[in-house]
Simulated scan of single mutants.
Amino acid sequence: MSRRKKHEEAHENHERWLLSYADFITLLMIFFIIMYSMSNLDKQKYQQVASSLNKAMGGGGGANIIGVDGKVDIQQSTPVDNGVVETTEEQKLEHVKDVVDKYLKDSGLSGSVETKVEERGLVLSFRDSLFFDSGKADIKPEQAKKLVEIGKLLNQPIINGSYIRVEGHTDNRPINTYLYKSNWDLSVIRASNVAQVLINQSGIKPERISAAGYGEFRPKAENNTEAGRASNRRVDILIMNSKFNEVENNKK
């Protein structure tokens, strides 16, 4: 009887070990199922966020800026001619440039205004003769409406986060009148008058705009020919790349 009892006890201990092992395997399986479910949920969240951001940026053909693995990709999938992938900021400025270029072409102003996207932002360069008489800073009344319309094109929500600087320039021929004692004076007042139109008639918020005058000291061309001097007499409107916003806003 004693041998049979011991055999039964050993058999019962063996069954308890299997039960504990089965419980452990079950818990482990549940753990991995939960982890897998959480992983799939994160993917869905990232995909939803990426889709929303693409729509907000006006994209449709570009790649997601957030991938399904959660990594951030700041580049878009639209290549330029030299093979470099454009950033979202450049695409915004190029979009505004295209809109402005179309208006300039339709209005017959292409020969008087140059547009260019460069590192500091989008530059619209106006020959002074378009808006001003020689040696004067008052905007021609018959041309003011065109400046207002261009200003409205620059007031698009897509670039509302960018600052705008109006820059006045002259050639190197000295000026000394009862209104303007130097080219500095003339360039500053011209820039200020353009800025006032953009604020008062184009609806651009004044805190986004500044005006500066450089006189003859930042020429685009040589001043030894009439063509060169004509190129230097200009007013530039700069829509700044947003990476310079902190500098423009005097933030450190």
Score class of each variant (00 low, 15 high):
225 T>Q: 03
225 T>W: 02
52 S>A: 13
183 N>L: 04
237 I>P: 14
94 E>L: 15
165 R>H: 02
231 S>T: 04
88 T>Q: 07
57 M>E: 12
191 A>P: 08
13 N>D: 09
104 L>G: 07
145 K>C: 01
57 M>W: 15
117 V>K: 05
17 W>D: 13
153 L>R: 01
235 V>C: 08
22 A>Y: 07
36 Y>E: 09
28 L>C: 09
68 V>W: 05
237 I>N: 06
146 K>A: 12
230 A>D: 15
103 Y>V: 04
172 N>F: 03
169 H>V: 04
114 E>A: 15
211 A>V: 00
53 L>N: 03
12 E>I: 12
13 N>C: 02
76 Q>E: 11
10 A>N: 14
119 E>Q: 11
169 H>Y: 15
249 N>A: 14
66 I>H: 02
110 S>Y: 02
146 K>I: 00
33 I>L: 09
144 A>M: 12
3 R>C: 06
219 P>I: 01
228 G>R: 04
205 K>C: 01
229 R>D: 03
70 G>R: 09
190 R>L: 07
232 N>H: 06
73 D>G: 06
96 V>N: 03
224 N>R: 09
146 K>L: 12
20 S>H: 15
111 G>N: 10
30 I>L: 15
211 A>E: 01
151 G>E: 00
14 H>A: 15
196 Q>D: 13
121 G>C: 01
234 R>E: 02
86 E>H: 03
248 E>W: 04
135 G>Y: 04
80 V>L: 13
11 H>W: 08
188 V>W: 08
105 K>R: 14
85 V>Y: 14
19 L>C: 11
168 G>K: 05
231 S>C: 04
50 A>Y: 05
232 N>R: 05
244 F>S: 01
201 Q>R: 10
52 S>V: 11
15 E>Q: 13
190 R>P: 11
64 N>F: 09
143 Q>L: 04
59 G>I: 00
208 R>N: 05
157 P>C: 04
170 T>G: 05
174 P>K: 11
235 V>P: 07
175 I>V: 14
88 T>V: 09
4 R>P: 01
9 E>D: 12
153 L>W: 00
188 V>L: 13
71 K>Y: 11
167 E>C: 13
